[in-house]
Design a protein around this nucleic acid. Structure first.
Length: 138
DNA sequence: GCCAACGTTGGC
DNA sequence: GCCAACGTTGGC
């Protein structure tokens, strides 16, 4: 199983909204960057991803699971290369992990979140995953 | 194919 | 509100 991190501005799509969708989940729409798209296309059913609130909060708030692999983004024009996956909320982090805490942890210095701050869908290593879960109280 | 101009993201 | 990083566009 692979691990990922997906960013959303809570004004546009928040963790609470994701939780309300329950087991049905929701399509992750709106990715318009090729690097992020390639990551979406690598995702397999059953992979897990951190749900990160950008701009407001700036923290990892929960864990989602990929429940449907990539298909064409219905919010994009036909013929464009943009894709979505569907994700469902698995569980919140008891203590959301803020960006400042990630920056303060030397073992997380190589995260794409810090190195490529604008990439909205990014891979996370198993080590980074475990550490952030622990920091979040899981 | 290069590069300046411009737009967007996202932290501060 | 500002600005750095970075992706995209368009002229040459």
């Amino acid at each position: 199983m692979a691990y990922w991190l997906m960013k959303s501005e809570p004004d546009a799509w928040s963790w609470d909204q994701q939780v309300k969708k329950g087991a049905k989940g929701e399509a992750w729409t709106g990715v318009r960057n090729h690097s992020a798209k390639l990551n979406l296309m690598k995702m397999k059913q059953g992979d897990r991803a951190f749900f990160y609130h950008s701009n407001i909060g700036k923290e990892v708030v929960g864990i989602v699971e990929i429940i449907r692999e990539h298909y064409h983004d219905p919010t994009a024009e036909p013929g464009t290369p943009w894709v979505v996956v569907e994700v469902k909320a698995v569980q919140p982090l008891p203590n959301p992990v803020p960006l400042a805490a990630i920056k303060a942890e030397p073992r997380l210095a190589e995260m794409a979140l810090l190195k490529q701050s604008r990439l909205s869908v990014q891979p996370v290593t198993a080590e980074e995953w475990k550490l952030i879960c622990k920091m979040g109280g899981l």
